[in-house]
């Protein structure tokens, strides 16, 4: 068959894989909803979880879409569509594709016309991300079992343990926000942009939290995170205007994520 990065057969195969992945989410969603009912979790809590998760997802999902557009220039649409809907984050996929293209002596901006090059890139991207994909189904039960044991042994510690994990992850990302402030001394004010964006988002979150409790506006807490996210993102446009464009945008688009 004649090769093209946008060949209909590629669309069909990718469409099928994405449908399977979608089916997995629906399968687990239905079972969790049923279980939630059995556990006696309030219907309103479930409803709020669904709507605010959906609303929260919109902005980050559009950022992922930006990655599809960027990669589609050399790889066509089906492959980036697959890689970014199923596993894959923009940073990882861009780096993996870049490594493969570099090894092939192909420049990243031009559309691939040789199927040999296409499958080489495809294999690098597929194998590169395989570790956690294979490992997660195999070890999750064991790790989860260990967590349950801690919970049974000492309930209070188990709670603190949980909070400590979340806090540890958040602190790593807070540190990352400051990673370029050292350049400020050298006249590169761009390093201030992520710091200011974070500050705006934090202030919005704090104000919304206060309003919600003081004025008893319950729905505000449900959408506080998406609102602070969007306001923070919008403020980035302003701060970039003030401090200048960011040099390492491609890298920062999304971090190792996956």
């Amino acid at each position: 068959m004649d090769f093209s990065v946008n060949s209909p057969i590629l669309y069909i195969m990718v469409g099928i894989i994405i449908a399977v992945v979608l089916a997995q989410s629906v399968f687990f969603l239905v079972r969790a909803l049923k279980r939630a009912k059995e556990l006696g979790i309030a219907g309103t809590t479930i409803k709020k979880t669904i709507t605010s998760s959906a609303v929260f997802t919109i902005a980050p999902a559009i950022a992922v879409l930006v990655g599809v557009v960027a990669l589609s220039k050399s790889l066509g649409i089906p492959l980036p569509w697959l890689r970014l809907s199923v596993i894959g984050s923009i940073t990882y996929e861009t780096v993996a594709a870049g490594n493969a293209l570099e090894a092939l002596g192909q420049s990243a901006g031009t559309t691939i016309t040789d199927p040999k090059i296409y499958v080489t890139v495809l294999w690098v991207m597929t194998l590169g991300i395989a570790a956690s994909l294979v490992l997660a189904p195999l070890v999750t039960k064991k790790i989860q079992g260990g967590m349950t044991k801690i919970g049974l042994k000492d309930k209070k510690w188990s709670e603190i343990f949980n909070n400590a994990m979340f806090l540890g992850m958040i602190s790593a990302f807070l540190g990352y926000v400051f990673c370029d402030v050292t350049y400020i001394g050298k006249g590169f004010l761009q390093g201030l942009t992520p710091v200011c964006v974070m500050a705006v988002s934090a202030v919005v979150m704090a104000v919304l939290g206060l309003l919600a409790t003081k004025l008893k506006i319950r729905w505000l807490t449900d959408y506080a995170l998406p609102i602070s996210l969007i306001v923070g993102m919008a403020s980035a446009i302003l701060f970039t205007d003030i401090f200048g464009g960011y040099e390492i945008t491609a890298q920062m688009l999304s971090e190792v994520a996956k």
């Binding site: 902005a59 909070n163 958040i170 964006v197 704090a206 939290g209 602070s228 993102m233 970039t240 920062m252």
Partner: peptide
């Protein structure tokens, strides 16, 4: 810039919630 600053915008809000709850530990 809005898309490239998604992580700071996300973790700023999230940090407020968790730091205010676990001030000493954070």
């Amino acid at each position: 810039p809005a898309f490239s600053m998604i992580l700071p915008a996300l973790f700023g809000g999230l940090a407020v919630v968790f730091i205010s709850k676990n001030l000493k530990l954070s």
